[in-house]
């Protein structure tokens, strides 16, 4: 399944790019993050993050669909 992932903040720094297209077997954002965390040694746990699918907040165990855009959201610090 083809998924588009965008990276921000500390994840962008640790991944070394701001976005990529992946062909993945991960069925959920949780599985996708676990796979990426293993590949890229991300230091944040999924419990530290929120996740967005197609530009809105989503649940970690939602089913991913072909062509989805996924963003993992590190702890925010606006203001």
């Amino acid at each position: 399944m083809k998924i588009h992932v965008e990276y921000y903040a500390i994840l962008k720094e640790q991944r070394g790019c701001s976005q990529e297209n992946l062909d993945t077997d991960a069925a959920t954002p949780r599985a996708l993050y676990a796979s990426l965390k293993g590949d890229h040694a991300f230091t944040l746990e999924d419990s530290d993050l929120k996740v967005a699918v197609n530009e809105d907040f989503a649940s970690w165990d939602d089913a991913l669909e072909e062509g989805d855009t996924v963003v993992f959201i590190p702890p925010v610090a606006g203001g």
């Binding site: 590190p74 925010v76 203001g79």
Partner: peptide, 14 residues
């Protein structure tokens, strides 16, 4: 508004 933005909006500070 300030409190909620600090807690919820995806903005990061380095």
């Amino acid at each position: 508004i300030v409190d909620e933005i600090k807690a919820r909006v995806p903005i990061w500070k380095r």
